[in-house]
Write a protein that binds this DNA or RNA. Structure first.
Lengths: 264, 264
DNA sequence: CGAGCGTTTGATCGGTGTCAAGGATCGTGG
DNA sequence: CCACGATCCTTGACACCGATCAAACGCTCG
């Protein structure tokens, strides 16, 4: 079923956007045990609160991580794309609080938890890279909280589009200003804490203002600067450890005046 | 000022709520190098986008992690309490996208990034525990996105109070139904994506309905079940790897069995 | 005793949700 | 190749939650 060429290169690529790896470490990653699963659109492959002991690398297609409420409400908390990891928490603990499901058909590599254990024991730098991915996931998650909590409907959708553009570009899946977006307006609503009908109206408004254009499942950002402005988009939360702001020669936190020094 | 007894026990306690550690590993953690900083209320000790190479353990007091928007808006994305880690991303990368600031006066232990490097190289199980903390942080963060995105004002505040009750109880800082809450209504608004005046009105309404009572900086949950109901609170996202639903006979974390068989 | 911050209250406004229905598109099977 | 159902998109009217603006009150601390 799977083409013989399929391997974990997308994961490798992803890790290397944030971390430096030696060529030996690259080989270790590519030699990780896994087996492939070809998934159909909207199949839920990691159900909420289910027990499993493996994690997944999304090799192709789009997926979303979501949580559903008792009343049937649903919030999408992450959009996953090629190279993204899912289910690390399950690999370490056996279960997690969220569901992951495909939005398009796609291909995932299931990696047994034992492989993670082995990395922990023998590959500190790879573990650092994986841990880093978890941290960047957290950064995206925080930005989503900001997005939902503090921006109006226009800003929320604009920000989501900006984020996806940058991430897809980083992942080598398209241009920052033009990319496939297989999410329905219903799913966009679940990403942004809005209702589908309001998403519809806001998208129309963004189109009318010449900021974006979209036809069937494909988005073009016509005016990146304008969209980023109403989104309040600051892409630094998506970037790796590059030089920060470099205001001075490595200054320590200046605001620690009231701090008392003691010896550990 | 700092009692000679001060050490990293709160971190240890925190890690052990989610992970199992040997006594040797406990000793390693308690022997980590750090120096203490006594911080005054509302001092921002980890400014947004600033470069530093250490992480912090909150030993006493309350802090919040927040992101500020260009327009001055502000979203609190986490409430930190005794034992919580902050700045791991900074330790690994040198900077992060969020600010951390005290809400009360408090005490933090600053741990140099080099200590983390050493743990990576020599203490896989401690690294696993730390990584796990990052994962649980992520779970809380996701739940906040759900909270802000999919609940009305009453539900949001109710959920926040439930979460804080459980976490404070886990951390040994109070009862689940009664605890100190030093956040102002302004800060509660920044946690929930609401305005301060609306927070005020909703709190009054919760009080009127006999769900909570609060006087200066202390909250009592009078009707946990009722509050949890309108919050849609499901505390599983805060819990460790213990038995999931306990539907079956087994209850050890050796729930590894259900895993789909994968041959490398 | 005054200043500043946090809390409370009232009046009004607007953004977003809700409800309902029609139209477009796509996949599927006859 | 067409028919058909399902899903998605679009539109309109209306209701309401929560924001906004403004002002007063009560602490606490210098």
């Amino acid at each position: 079923m799977a083409s013989p060429q399929v391997d974990l290169t997308p994961l490798l690529r992803k890790l290397e956007t944030h971390s430096a790896l030696t060529s030996a470490e690259r080989d270790v990653i590519l030699a990780l045990p896994f087996h492939l699963r070809l998934l159909s659109a909207s199949s839920q492959f990691l159900p909420q609160n289910e027990v499993t002991r493996q994690c997944f690398v999304l090799l192709d297609g789009y997926a979303v991580r979501s949580k559903v409420l008792r009343d049937g409400g649903r919030q999408i908390v992450t959009v996953l794309m090629r190279g993204d990891l899912a289910g690390v928490q399950r690999a370490l603990f056996g279960r997690a609080d969220n569901a992951v499901e495909m939005v398009t058909k796609g291909l995932v590599a299931a990696i047994p938890a034992t492989a993670i254990d082995e990395l922990l024991a023998t590959q500190p730098n790879i573990v650092r890279a994986l841990w880093s991915e978890t941290l960047f996931d957290g950064a995206i998650q925080r930005e989503w909280a900001v997005n939902i909590g503090r921006r109006d409907a226009h800003g929320r959708l604009a920000h989501l589009l900006c984020e996806l553009g940058v991430r897809l570009h980083q992942a080598g899946l398209g241009e920052r200003e033009q990319f496939d977006l297989p999410l329905t307006q219903n799913q966009l609503a679940d990403c942004t804490g809005l209702t589908p009908v309001h998403v519809n109206r806001v998208l129309q408004s963004l189109r009318r203002d010449g900021l974006i254009s979209n036809e069937l499942r494909r988005v073009t950002i016509e005016d990146w600067a304008g969209l980023a402005r109403i989104a309040g988009f600051d892409e630094r939360y998506l970037r790796g450890p590059g030089p920060a702001r470099r205001t001075g020669p490595f200054e320590l936190s200046a605001t620690l005046q009231g701090a008392v020094d003691a010896r550990g």
